[in-house]
Design a protein around this nucleic acid. Structure first.
Lengths: 340, 340
DNA sequence: CTGAAAGCGCTTACAG
DNA sequence: CTGAAAGCGCTTACAG
């Protein structure tokens, strides 16, 4: 593997001049540049990024920590990679498996200067862990659970959008609306926030809040949704609408209702949240909330890139003061499952 | 940011001893080790990975180049990240967008020693590009299109599994089986290979091969599948079975048939390929081919890790001679769409 | 069991 | 427009 020294020798110039050519610095005579380029081609020279990183103190790579690279997070990751590319940044993906421990691990790993910054999708960490976000490199939180922390935050309008989804069911004539959600906690997680929006909508409409209608499943998977929907029908639960806190679990709910012989939307109307790709093509197609994923991704990367630039100029990562909280826009997508 | 020198000074030892502690080398007295660990904790020391990489000549990171991180490739990426972790390797994902150019870009980028090796999912490159795979670092090809190349290769049993899928439809009584596939080429791409399996099955069963039944769409998306299925019915095409070359396009086909009022499986039976997560929960649930993704991922990473180790020992990446070609196993998953 | 020193391959003030 | 040299922060033969 040829080094910059080899090229310098072959071209009859100094290493610095080779470096100048590589980095497109202006002060190189055309003739010199060409000599160097020829030597580089001849020796099949490739810059050693590890050496450059060490010298520059940055790697040009950001970390993206998500629970997994599937479904919703796959879509998000795709958007983030695209946005990072526009900033000339590479993305390295870490899977956290939604565990608090792994999320914290990622935080201390990245400190190793492997990444110039980190986009962390918090699912396991709670607001009690806010202090641990005070690391000495740029971090952007993407998701719920941590608000008012020491770093930039990009989130969805969970409460408002859930309110709108539930209201949509009410407007379609539903009077007994079930909620299928994950475990409800005191934390500001996805399920709890969307539950709040659901409750608010019922309240605004003057509908009674029957605890039996709140169907919490352990994990928001298709399988869990299918199982729970069947149980709801078998147990004789009286309901004519379902707000599912994710499209993924809604796919299962639609399946479970079909298994139980309940026609959607005739007898029960269903709405989800996320607008994953398949929602449009299910039978019946799934009404849902469409948060602006691309904008969230773009924003998260922009914020991080800004932090990286500033911390480079200052030599320090600042905390507190000027942090940003961005909430994306959303729309209600009306399809067959709510009787479009 | 504390360096190893700072720690050495604080602990009253040499940098080398600190290094020995960090890397768990045996020859350190317990008392010394503890002094060093205490100093590390006090200074909040984190190893500088860039420096270590430069010194070691490797990064502990492998590249994974896939068209996108969604659907099928998301699942694969998840499995690969898990497998790499077992080898102590980090994974950096590059999106190629299925273009030949980007795939070639990734090949030359990684040469920059950013990655210790590369898993490349070829979708755009063709067999004409085989020579370009002769790079001086370990590469494993994951996918079709390039067989007999200079590097290890992990593939699916496309022809055999497609044969089995089609035979399943025949056994269910289908006599006019349509194929929904991508563009058919002379290359060994997914569509062409699966088309071959389809044709073989028809041949074995003594069924006529009607070119009208081969429905090639530009891109294998849900939308394209839905549109094409509707057109097939509207155009009065006579068919009682459909083999879709991917589950993704099959989701669309099921939707399109529903739009056209064609009951599945009563009038038309449908089978896909890939066994993506949602296939089980569609209405009707989708019969499909389940290739062993986890095994493919595991195998690809094992092969790459082996190459990395050997090229480290030899200081050279060998080509040709001992390359491996691994074909995964598969099973036919029978569900409602073929009238289970 | 521990240390002094070289060197991995770059980039960048500083000179000229 | 070009060069000599220092230094980024590690690891590792080589000594002792």
């Amino acid at each position: 593997m040829a080094t910059i020294q080899d090229v310098a020798k072959a071209a009859g110039v100094s290493a610095m001049t080779v470096s100048n050519v590589i980095n497109d610095h202006p002060n190189v005579r055309t003739a010199t540049r060409e000599k160097v380029l020829a030597a580089m081609a001849r020796l099949d020279y490739r810059v050693n990024v590890a050496a450059r990183n060490l010298r520059k103190g940055r790697t040009g790579t950001i970390g993206l920590a998500v629970p997994e690279v599937n479904g919703y997070y796959g879509r998000l990751a795709t958007a983030i990679i695209a946005a990072a590319e526009r900033h000339g940044l590479r993305v390295s993906i870490e899977q956290t498996g939604a565990s608090r421990e792994n999320e914290l691990d990622v935080l201390s790993m990245s400190r190793n200067r492997l990444y110039d910054g980190l986009i962390l999708s918090t699912v396991g960490m709670g607001s009690a862990d806010v202090e641990l976000l005070k690391v000495d490199y740029p971090v952007v939180i993407l998701g719920e659970r941590i608000f008012g922390g020491p770093v930039d935050h990009v989130a969805m309008p969970n409460v408002e959008a859930s309110h709108a989804a539930t209201r949509h069911l009410i407007e379609r004539g539903c009077r007994r609306i079930a909620l299928v959600c994950g475990p409800l906690t005191d934390e500001v997680d996805v399920s709890s926030l969307r539950f709040t929006g659901y409750r608010q909508a019922l309240l605004s409409a003057g509908q009674p809040q029957d605890p039996e209608l709140v169907q919490s499943v352990e994990r928001l998977t298709m399988r869990a949704g299918a199982l729970r929907a069947r149980q709801m029908v078998e147990n004789g639960l009286d309901f004519d609408g379902v707000f599912c806190v994710t499209d993924t679990v809604a796919v299962g709910v639609l399946r479970g209702l079909a298994d139980a012989g309940v026609p959607v939307p005739e007898r029960v109307k269903v709405i989800g949240f996320d607008n994953i790709e398949e929602s449009e093509f299910l039978v019946p197609s799934l009404s849902t909330i469409d948060p602006d994923h691309d904008m969230m991704a773009q924003r998260a990367v922009d914020l991080l890139a800004g932090r990286i630039e500033r911390s480079e100029r200052n030599g320090r990562t600042e905390h507190g003061a000027d942090r940003e909280e961005f909430v994306s826009s959303y729309s209600v997508v009306i399809r067959e499952s709510t009787g479009s």
